[in-house]
Simulated assay, not measured.
Amino acid sequence: MKIAAYEVRRDEQKDFAFIAEKFGVELTETEDNLTLENIDTVNGAEGVTTLGRTRFDRALLTAVQERGVKYISTRTIGADHIDLTAAKELGLKVCNSNYAPNGVADYTVMLILLSLRKYKPALWRAQVNDYSLAGLQGRELRNLTVGILGTGKIGAAVIKNLSGFGCRILASDIRENPSLKGLCTYVDNETLYKACDIISLHMPLLESTRHFVNAETIAKMKDGVTIINCARGELMNIPDMIRGIETQKIGALALDVFDKEDGIYHENRRDDILSNRDMAYLRQFPNVIMTQHMAFYTDAAVQSMVFCGIEGLCDFAKTGHTETELV
């Protein structure tokens, strides 16, 4: 089987070499996105694997299908960059990746603690030899109530991590996760907003969850609420988040993702003019932490993403299906 791999990072190359030999596939690799401009590079490939920068709209899906591609894998959990309806109509099978939730869950707790202990302004001061304490008094997690929106694998792992801190944990989801019995209390969203000092988002990005956190929901939250997002940037209405920070309704904000981050995060843009004004403006607040979509980025997760990306395509070719099939 011939597979064309796109958006291949240097840290993936060793794992790609190992898995290609294990499954006996012919693999071509490039760091470029797959686009209509370089579409002929898929010629002869039965399967294609990419990360999230390649946008599989109907035109690109049609182009790969016309060149003999039958299977597509995304080395990400989310698949909102793929038009699944078009893929199904074209007869293309699509699968996503999978990795343990621990890395993102650990990172989420880290962002909670950094926010509570005001580490960002403390770091700024230390860089100019200012070691004063005024304005840096933090809060202890054991005295607070944490709300988790979404209790799938990652949300559940966050709750299990937090259970050791002694804080009260509330959760909301369309269905309860039985593995969390005794660790949290399920409530409706309205109750969670009113009761929680910290709210962390762990929902998938769907049309029903796009801009889930907005002016209306923020108004229902506690004054000075801390909000954490290691899921998807589009879950938040960014102008409303900015107003929340400016009015101090939001006491702290920690984001590993951002709306319209494509073309910025995971790229070296140090000498470029960036057009995402909201990103530049929000980043400068002392109570806002922003990292470059790296909560997932651990050695174990990268290996799993590569393995799933190739194994899923091989399963399609061998049996016609895979456990992570989306179409």
Rank of each mutant, 00 (worst) to 15 (best):
S172I: 01
E190Q: 08
E176R: 12
L183T: 11
A231L: 03
L205H: 05
I228F: 07
D173W: 10
R168F: 04
K181T: 14
K194S: 09
G182R: 04
A215G: 15
P178S: 09
I169R: 00
L206D: 01
P178V: 10
L206E: 02
T185V: 12
M236F: 06
D197A: 03
G224H: 01
L192R: 03
R210F: 12
H202C: 08
I218Q: 12
V213Q: 02
R210C: 01
A171E: 11
S179V: 14
S208H: 07
T217Y: 08
E234K: 00
R232H: 02
L205I: 03
M221Q: 06
L205V: 08
L201M: 11
I198E: 10
N229Y: 01
T217K: 05
H202E: 12
V213G: 06
K220V: 13
I227M: 13
C184N: 10
D197R: 05
S172V: 12
R175M: 12
D188L: 11
L206N: 05
V187R: 05
T191H: 02
C230L: 13
I198S: 06
T226Q: 04
L206K: 00
E176G: 14
K181E: 13
F212G: 13
N229C: 10
L192S: 00
V225Q: 07
M203H: 05
L192F: 00
M221E: 12
V187D: 00
V187P: 01
A171W: 09
Y186I: 12
N214Q: 09
S200C: 04
L206M: 12
D173V: 06
E190F: 04
A231Y: 01
E216K: 11
T185M: 08
I218G: 15
F212N: 01
A219K: 15
I174T: 15
